[in-house]
Computed example of a mutant assay.
Amino acid sequence: MSTTPTTAGAVVPPLFQGLFDDAAVFPPGNLPVAEAVPAHLAHRAAPYADAVGPLLCGAGRLGELAAAVGAVTGTAAGGTGAVSADGTGPRLRVGLVLPGGSSELGPALTSAAPFVVAGVELATRDAREAVAALDLLLPPDVPAAVELPRELLRGDGLEEVLDVLVDSPYRAKFRTGGVVAGAFPDEAELAGFLTGCAQRGLPYKCTAGLHHAVRHTDPATGFEHHGFLNVLLAAAETDPKAAAEILAERSGEVLAEAVRTLTDRQVTVIRNSFTAFGTCSIAEPLDDLAALGLLSPDLTPQEDR
């Protein structure tokens, strides 16, 4: 299968469809909600819209989000039109991020009623308790992901958590970066999570630190960032050593060539595993793919051209 599109009638390749959840309001981007809403609506109307997932929002900012959408559409914040792209169209798709755990779930779902809840991301220290809360309160058509602190996912802790989630309808969520060096797992730690999920057929999403396609050292901070292409290619591996080797690859050309050789079946397996990741920039990952020849330049944000 070739994932290199032609310019005429360019489409987002299946490997990248819905991969980039819009986390513009989260660190390190920290875009004000009033700016994030029109930017997200522009992404959803752009030629690359198929690559963009929901707008992620913390539970405590849903009122602010409704007001911002109302300001963009010229409708009252509490009305149905306040959450549509143009005042008449489909309601805004929002991913609820709940760092406060299960106690936030019920109130957040109530506050999010004006929106289409496209997913819930629940942080917890107890996977069983989180699953029980989701079973009780989450509508059956809303997907969810459960995130535990990385310190609880070391050794036998990882196996125990993944075994709890594989018996549930929910995904795992893994933090791949942050604003301090310690927030970035090394290749072995991330490979352990990826292969543990692959061995169980457990889907997952990632968050933070994956703005760029290829593993690199950030020149400003010195932090080691994983590349989202590395993670995609490692997603189908069940051997931790093989996955770690892919995660360590720093050549964009090597990774791009590996992507080009993927079969349709391999793409399906990969995306059934690695479903999405949150990125505070939609432009950066698209630009990286275009630079590697994996995405038509027509499918990058206009302001970057």
Rank of each mutant, 00 (worst) to 15 (best):
290 A>H: 07
275 T>N: 10
293 G>Q: 00
299 L>E: 09
267 V>F: 05
297 P>G: 05
274 F>R: 00
269 V>I: 13
288 D>C: 11
272 N>R: 03
268 T>L: 13
299 L>P: 01
290 A>K: 01
280 C>K: 13
286 L>N: 01
286 L>E: 03
276 A>E: 08
302 Q>N: 15
289 L>D: 04
272 N>A: 07
287 D>K: 00
301 P>I: 07
300 T>G: 04
284 E>P: 13
268 T>S: 12
289 L>Y: 03
288 D>T: 02
270 I>M: 11
277 F>V: 04
282 I>D: 00
268 T>A: 14
299 L>Q: 09
291 A>C: 08
296 S>I: 07
301 P>Y: 04
290 A>W: 03
269 V>Q: 15
283 A>R: 06
271 R>F: 03
296 S>G: 11
287 D>G: 07
302 Q>F: 15
296 S>M: 06
266 Q>H: 11
287 D>I: 12
267 V>K: 07
284 E>C: 04
290 A>L: 08
293 G>S: 01
288 D>W: 13
270 I>C: 07
298 D>R: 14
301 P>A: 10
297 P>N: 11
293 G>I: 02
266 Q>T: 06
272 N>D: 10
268 T>D: 15
275 T>A: 10
297 P>A: 05
291 A>E: 04
293 G>T: 00
295 L>Q: 10
295 L>V: 05
289 L>A: 06
274 F>K: 01
305 R>N: 14
